[in-house]
Nucleic acid binder design. Structure first.
Lengths: 331, 331
DNA sequence: GATGCCTACGTTACCGGTAAACCTAAGGAG
DNA sequence: CTCCTTAGGTTTACCGGTAACGTAGGCATC
């Protein structure tokens, strides 16, 4: 039914080792033999068995795992795309997982992954369970932590500082004359990185002498609705806010929709700032004030760091990718 | 260094077959033995080798592949999420791929995938290269085609008819009194499914006696910008259009942004309709007229169809999921 | 008391590749 | 003429599980 190397070897009158070498494009065979083997393989409809290959010679795995917080996130979609394009081109396969912002779900996924003996792993964020870290250290797998920067990565890291993003936006609001800023977050107690942005934001405001006026951290996923209702909640508590910083752009656009529904003028009555740089943010009647994150570049850099490690090239352990605050017209 | 079944067997004083049985939670061992084996496995930090397991007993693979058109699509992010949640819970691992709307890229990915001897495959769309179909038939792998419905699937299908979506929207526009409708598409010559919606749309308009006035199919990816510029192009050619149907909601919102920039009133001067049902569409000042697609439900249904086939349960070959036209306030 | 059946294991034989070691004939150098 | 090298192979020994089958001892049944 389905042919293996042995079948090809028999039909071509060579040993299966020779077939293996031919098919992998190595050396140690004549052109005649190569052609014969290729033809027989084609004729028999040979389908390689990577399971056997990876099992028999463990270093030959072409499997890479990547775990993101949520598969429904637009930003991480672009990260995945960057990783996928870079790795597919080099003959790797991508195994995917979502941790839903829970380190124990991540650990469960990592355990499954390592049982497939992959060539490497890409994780999101810098917060992992002890079990995860332990396992990855023990298996000595190449690991790239992306998205949030850490100075002491498990192995390698590609990202930026969420804390700095928040601080930069805080400073920007202050410079634009805002004095009573609020914050609307999401995924309460789950999302470490949004919390880091809030920390940085809060610190910058405090240092400027105009501390954070109020914050509303929703439990929902960070979407348009959540932004809309978060804005409503925040303003019902503090009607005097003159700026609101949102968990991300989707929420900011939701908040913007609320100001329109309520007849508030932006940026005159209140300023709105987002984070992440989704495409829609730049097509609004007023371009959204936000921070652009080079998502696809992060994915690409992570893939390249991983492949670099595998091919023995020595790259930096920590790669910082620059984010960019876009002033926009909503603050 | 790293322990295998043999090591555990030696340390626990049993055979490795017994260890295998214990770790997989089977039967044929005493409670005493079970506890001893589990303790030893824990102590040695045993990491299962699914490579060896899947290789040695081919039917035991827990690998499922899924190929989507683009990883950056919000809609497919939700599909992936639906698939991932359903399969992770059942102990499967997801291998992912993107075909970039090209059937030969899909074929290349499928070839890589089958070499991992997966338990099943989920493909997007119903258009595949002969090589892909051939390969999947030959390997007799469970296959679920999602997103676009086909009456003669390779194996199973979960989706809806894009043609019908377009036709339904065409009829809706006619009913709302529109007589000169245009269309803005994307991914020219690549996206089969958007083309199917246009076909249905065109047919419905023609049947009503008010044929499609004009269509602009861009080569770009379907995003906000593309919608904005597509709208501009279309209106510069046909200033008398009274409705425009877009490839998807993002493009429709982009088009909407153009009408605002140009001072056109929606829906009075011109109607705007999208497709897909992205969350942002329902939070606009005027709720967008669009078609809601049950993305996560499609993912879940696809996963369940696949697992059903694997466990021998007989389900339907074709599952139709309902889409819903949301009238909105932009037409 | 022979037979059958059940429990709780152990034994054996693979699965399909790959690395490493080994072989052999032909050609060239000394 | 012998030795060495090289091209072009072959042989052997795994990798770590699992299915299928074998078996010893205990108990119930006829």
């Amino acid at each position: 039914m389905k042919a293996n190397l042995e079948d090809i070897a028999r039909a071509a009158g060579v040993s299966k080792m020779t077939v293996s070498r031919v098919l992998r494009g190595g050396s140690g065979f004549s052109e005649d033999t190569r052609i014969r083997v290729m033809q027989v393989a084609e004729r028999l409809g040979y389908i390689p068995n990577r399971l056997a290959a990876a099992f028999g010679a463990e270093q030959a795995s072409t499997l890479v795992g990547i775990c993101v917080p949520r598969l429904t996130s637009g930003l991480f979609g672009h990260v995945l795309d960057g990783v996928d394009r870079a790795l597919t081109r080099l003959g790797f396969q991508l195994m995917i997982g979502a941790n839903n912002h829970a380190i124990d779900e991540e650990e469960a996924w990592v355990r499954q992954l390592v049982s497939w003996r992959p060539a490497g792993v890409i994780l999101s964020g810098r917060t992992h369970s002890p079990g995860t870290v332990d396992l990855l250290r023990k298996t000595a797998l190449p690991v790239v932590e992306i998205w949030d920067l850490t100075t002491s990565p498990i192995d390698m890291a590609v990202g930026f500082s969420h804390h700095d993003c928040g601080a930069e936006m805080g400073l920007h609001l202050i410079r634009r004359g805002r004095r009573r800023a609020g914050f609307v977050g999401a995924l309460a107690r789950a999302d470490v990185m949004g919390a880091a942005r809030l920390d940085g934001f809060r610190a910058a405001l405090a240092q400027a002498g105009h501390p954070l006026a109020d914050a509303e951290i929703l439990h929902d996923a960070p979407g348009f609705y959540a932004g809309y209702y978060g804005m409503e909640t925040l303003l019902s508590r503090r009607g005097d806010l003159d700026a609101v910083y949102f968990h991300n752009d989707e929420m900011a656009i939701g908040g913007l929709a609320f100001t329109q529904a309520r007849g508030l003028r932006v940026p005159e009555d209140i300023g709105i700032a987002g984070w992440g740089g989704m495409e829609a943010a730049s097509i609004l009647p007023r371009r959204l004030t936000t921070t652009m994150v080079p998502t696809a570049a992060i994915g690409k850099a992570a893939a390249e760091a991983l492949v670099g490690r595998l091919t023995g090239a020595s790259g930096p352990d920590v790669t910082v990718v620059p984010t960019r605050l876009v002033p926009g017209e909503t603050v």
